[in-house]
Design a protein around this nucleic acid. Structure first.
Lengths: 255, 255
DNA sequence: TGACGGACTTTGTCCGTATAAATTGGGCAA
DNA sequence: TTGCCCAATTTATACGGACAAAGTCCGTCA
């Protein structure tokens, strides 16, 4: 959607359907067609603009791409926004890329076991207390540095426990392994970043002082029907990890 | 682009053009049409699929929307990717929404002054040492709680210093004020989150212990030609701030 | 060699038409 | 009243055709 025809040096070439789209956009922005209401039907637009159905539909397609309307057979064109809504976007190819660990990092698994969420863990994972999980604990390390980057706790549904046996287990994001082995896809994900004093058990593993500044990142992965199937909690000591995100103004290609 | 026709309960309805699109996608993924090469022309596709030009073009439009091809009059359909590139997106309406402060928070400005970036500050801002900035310092507070949420340092170019005089200064993101007053728009932005021990001067302002865990968020705003025009640094004590981000699998509407 | 021009190819735009599918609303029956 | 089916409306899909605009290719000419 980046570089479609109709653009010349940033300017938009004139054409029948673009003119119609521009007029409709204006009418939507000015409230002639309010949000929630219907646009005129294709037949009406054909009459009022003296254009063919093809041309009218091409114009309406622009409004769809801009997120201004949705269209339904039997219903019509519903105005859902007065302005193109999205201005800035941040995109990632996969949720693995989301975490900006480079390829030189890996998980050094220290152990794994079944665990039942008590009230405190349930709050952290955002699941019901009493839910069963399979826990994988690991130290995140880098090829470059001797000091560990952080401590990782990975909670997956018990039925996915088999991922620990994979040969690429330490270097591939677990949610990708789950997808490959069990076909569980991630439909929705959530991340939380906050600061806390380093918990004593983790401090011991990482060789830092308990209570020292620690950055904790919680990632929750949801499948179909909002089912939470994996949560990872990583905790980093001061100076070992920075989360970075870039955002770009999204250019709307057509018109 | 969320909910176009052709989808029923997540499944895709069969239709001529979707079949053609699916076949072409497969051929692209398998390398029959390699990246950089051309797809068959519309006329050729009409012949090989026994479909009208309209139908073929509808199929190709799907590939365009998926970012697999670009089309040019006189050239053809160039394959630019073997797989739909973007899988997960996080979108925000404005960069103000980016920072998840609700409307109940505001900046309590404690002072402002000119400042020249020394080596240390330049590294933090990612600018050249010696660059001049206008610094606004403020405590971020909430209507709900007595304790301050954090400490904010806002660095803007000196020519934008006038924003402090605005009546809405404390409740509107500064980059929006700059946009309104001076027409400076944000084309690109970057965020960094890391943990550090609370610096003594800030600790004093916030009434917490120096060296206690602190979450620092740096936001850099760039205009046209990569010009850095604003940087904000906010520092939060433990328990006062959590950064949250939601990501949704981007559903490609057609097909 | 390099610039220019024209023929050719390919997509862009626009028109006409027909049938299918989805949605709504009203009438009818339980 | 409630629920179901039918008819009307509206968009979705698909066919046909025509000319314009943009890019490529190649031969000609300086």
């Amino acid at each position: 959607m980046a570089d479609l025809p109709g653009k010349v040096h940033g300017k938009v070439k004139a054409s029948r359907y673009r003119d119609i789209a521009a007029k409709l956009q204006k009418d939507i922005r000015l409230g002639t067609y309010a949000v929630g209401n219907l646009l005129p039907t294709e037949t009406e637009l054909m009459a009022s603009y003296t254009a063919s159905r093809q041309t009218v539909r091409e114009a309406l397609r622009i409004l769809i791409d801009q997120g201004l309307i949705i269209r339904r057979a039997g219903l019509g064109s519903v105005v859902i926004a007065a302005e193109p809504p999205v201005l800035f976007t941040h995109s990632v190819k996969s949720l693995g890329e989301w975490l900006r660990y480079s390829n030189e990092t890996y998980r050094d698994v220290t152990g794994s076991r079944d665990i039942v969420a008590d009230k405190k863990l349930a709050a952290m994972l955002k699941c019901e207390p009493g839910k069963s999980w399979f826990l994988i604990e690991a130290v995140r390390r880098s090829d470059q540095f001797a000091a560990p980057l952080g401590w990782t706790e990975i909670y997956v549904l018990r039925k996915f426990a088999g991922v620990v046996k994979r040969s690429d287990h330490g270097r591939t994001p677990v949610h990708e392994q789950v997808a490959k082995m069990y076909g569980q896809t991630t439909e929705y994900a959530q991340m939380e970043i906050f600061v806390r004093g380093m918990p004593a058990p983790i401090a011991k593993q990482l060789g830092v002082k308990a209570g020292s500044p620690a950055l904790t990142v919680v990632r929750r992965y949801y499948g179909l029907r909002e089912e939470l199937f994996e949560v990872t909690i990583t905790t980093h000591p001061e100076g070992r990890y920075t989360y970075t995100m870039d955002m770009q103004r999204s250019l709307r290609p057509r018109l």
